[in-house]
Structures are given as C-alpha cells and as structure tokens.
C-alpha cells in the first residue's frame, strides 16, 4: 500500500524529470539563442510590428 501511495509522487517526479529533460533538449537545439528575434517571430511583412490587428465591428479607424 505504501508503495502504491507513493505512485502519485513518483508521477509528479516523473513530470519534473521530463520537464528538466525538455529544457536541456531545448537548450541543446539552440532554442534560446537569438531571443530578440524570437519575440518578433509572430510578426511578418503582412502583419508587421506597429500594426493593430483587432477592432470593434463598425468602428472607424
């Protein structure tokens, strides 16, 4: 019973280990290089920085 009751803690620990592993993997892949560009990655020439993209219907812009 004791072992079974530790199951949840084991799963929690597994989760934490997986997270740390994912972090290490991401670092290795170079995901954290060039962060400034990362923040801008959701913009492009079609929807550039500086352009508001949502308005109330019928509103004058």
């Amino acid at each position: 019973m004791f072992l079974i009751s530790m199951l949840i803690w084991a799963t929690a620990l597994l989760g934490a280990v997986m997270t740390v592993w994912a972090l290490a993997w991401a670092v290795q892949r170079g995901e954290f290089r060039n962060l400034r560009q990362g923040a801008a990655s959701i913009f492009d020439a079609g929807e550039p920085i500086g352009q508001q993209t949502d308005f109330f219907p019928g509103a004058k812009r």
Binding site: A12, G15, A16, T19, V20, A22, L23, F32, L35, R36, G38, A39, A40, I42, F43, E47, P48, I49, G50, Q51, Q52, T53, D54
Partner: peptide, 25 residues
C-alpha cells in the same frame, strides 16, 4: 499581436514558462 508590439522581455517569458513547468506540479 493585437497591439503590434513584441513581448517586452522574451527572456522573462521563457523563465516564466520553465519555472511554472517545474514548480506547479
């Protein structure tokens, strides 16, 4: 996206994600 302004600090945003992933559980 709506404001057309990139996230203020991308470093902080990543720190935020990884600390949530590690601690919330």
């Amino acid at each position: 996206k709506v404001t057309g302004k990139p996230v203020h600090s991308y470093h902080l945003s990543l720190l935020g994600f990884w600390s949530l992933a590690i601690f919330y559980n």
